[in-house]
C-alpha cells in the first residue's frame, strides 16, 4: 500500500523533500511505519520528531491505512 509523507521546516530541510510517496506493508503500526521512513533519512535522527496521521498527532499503535497522509516534523515553534 502507498501513503503520502509530508515534511515541514527543519524536516523538509534535512530530507530535501516536502512530500513523498512511500510503500509500506499492509497493517503496519504507526510507530513501525515512522521508524521505517525516518530510517531512510539519517539526518532526521538528531531532532526530536513529532508524527501525525491524517492531520492528527499519532498515538503510535494505530494501524496505517492505504492512502493515509503522514507527516514528520520537529517540535513546533509558532507564536
Amino acid at each position: 500500500m502507498k501513503v503520502q509523507v509530508l515534511f515541514f521546516g527543519a524536516t523538509a530541510e534535512e530530507t530535501g523533500e516536502r512530500e513523498i510517496e512511500v510503500s509500506l506493508a499492509e497493517n503496519i503500526q504507526a510507530n513501525e511505519a515512522f521508524a521505517e521512513i525516518v530510517g531512510k533519512y539519517p539526518r532526521l535522527k538528531s531532532h526530536k520528531l513529532l508524527f501525525a496521521i491524517n492531520q492528527e498527532y499519532a498515538s503510535g499503535d494505530e494501524i496505517v491505512k492505504d492512502g493515509d497522509e503522514l507527516a514528520i516534523f520537529t517540535a513546533v515553534s509558532g507564536g
Binding site: 515541514f8 521546516g9 527543519a10 531532532h47 507527516a71 520537529t74 513546533v76 515553534s77 509558532g78
Partner: peptide
C-alpha cells in the same frame, strides 16, 4: 504545527519548541 526560522546576519535556524 507551525514553525519559525530565525534568520541572522550570519546564519539561520529552524526553532524547535
Amino acid at each position: 504545527p507551525i514553525w519559525k526560522k530565525e534568520v541572522y546576519a550570519d546564519g539561520e535556524v529552524w526553532v524547535e519548541g
